[in-house]
């Protein structure tokens, strides 16, 4: 932490310094961190949280958690994997809550047979996307986690292993089985 003084423009401040400022209670720095990574965190939450989860709520809680966790930040130049890790923790916490489970069951009962599609998508593409979405939702939570973190967010095996607290080999095994299930589901529906 070379200089902990306030400057007017925080947008150029590197991630580790930003987190050091947040640890000292500087809310402007939290705002900048939010600007940098909110989209990434939100995307992960949208894809991994249970269907009944309040995405906004989980994202907010993730950034509020930063206030507490910032002091323990390990100083890596890019805070994105760490933040995504905090997001995954919040998603798991959210999923565990009993009321969530009840709401999830209720939502499942109400859920339409096929998700809404955008007009830009061709019929074929959207049908395939809808199938993929069903197959993805049928995956176990553990498999969905590795698919999102590795395939969609591009985190390294080591980063994902740290986020999920499993050995790196487990990440690759889970991903292999997830892909197998997804491919199988897609080919089943096609035939």
């Amino acid at each position: 932490m070379p200089d902990r003084s306030r400057t007017r423009d925080l947008s150029e401040v590197p991630d580790p310094d930003l987190l050091a400022r947040i640890a000292q209670g500087e809310l402007g720095a939290l705002g900048v961190l939010y600007d940098r990574y909110e989209r990434d965190v939100r995307r992960v939450v949208a894809r991994l949280a249970s269907s009944s989860a309040d995405i906004d709520d989980v994202v907010q809680n993730t950034f509020l958690e930063v206030l507490r966790a910032a002091a323990g930040y390990d100083g890596r130049p890019n805070a994105r994997p760490w933040l995504i890790g905090l997001g995954v923790t919040q998603i798991r916490r959210d999923r565990r809550s009993v009321s969530r489970l009840a709401a999830r069951l209720a939502a499942w009962a109400r859920e339409p047979a096929s998700p809404p599609t955008s007009p830009e998508e061709s019929a074929v593409t959207s049908a395939r996307a809808a199938r993929l979405r069903r197959a993805f939702e049928a995956l176990s939570t553990k498999k969905r986690e590795v698919v999102v973190l590795v395939t969609l967010e591009g985190l390294s095996g080591e980063e994902v292993a740290r986020v999920l607290d499993v050995p790196v080999a487990t990440v690759w095994t889970r991903l292999h089985h997830a892909r197998k299930e997804l491919s199988h589901a897609m080919s089943q529906e096609e035939s």
Binding site: R42, R47, P115, A129, L132, V147, T151, R179, L182
Partner: peptide, 15 residues
């Protein structure tokens, strides 16, 4: 096929 699957996964809703 693997790349196609990856591309298709990108279409998952991202909130």
């Amino acid at each position: 096929r693997l790349r196609e699957l990856g591309k298709l996964l990108e279409s998952l809703p991202a909130g």
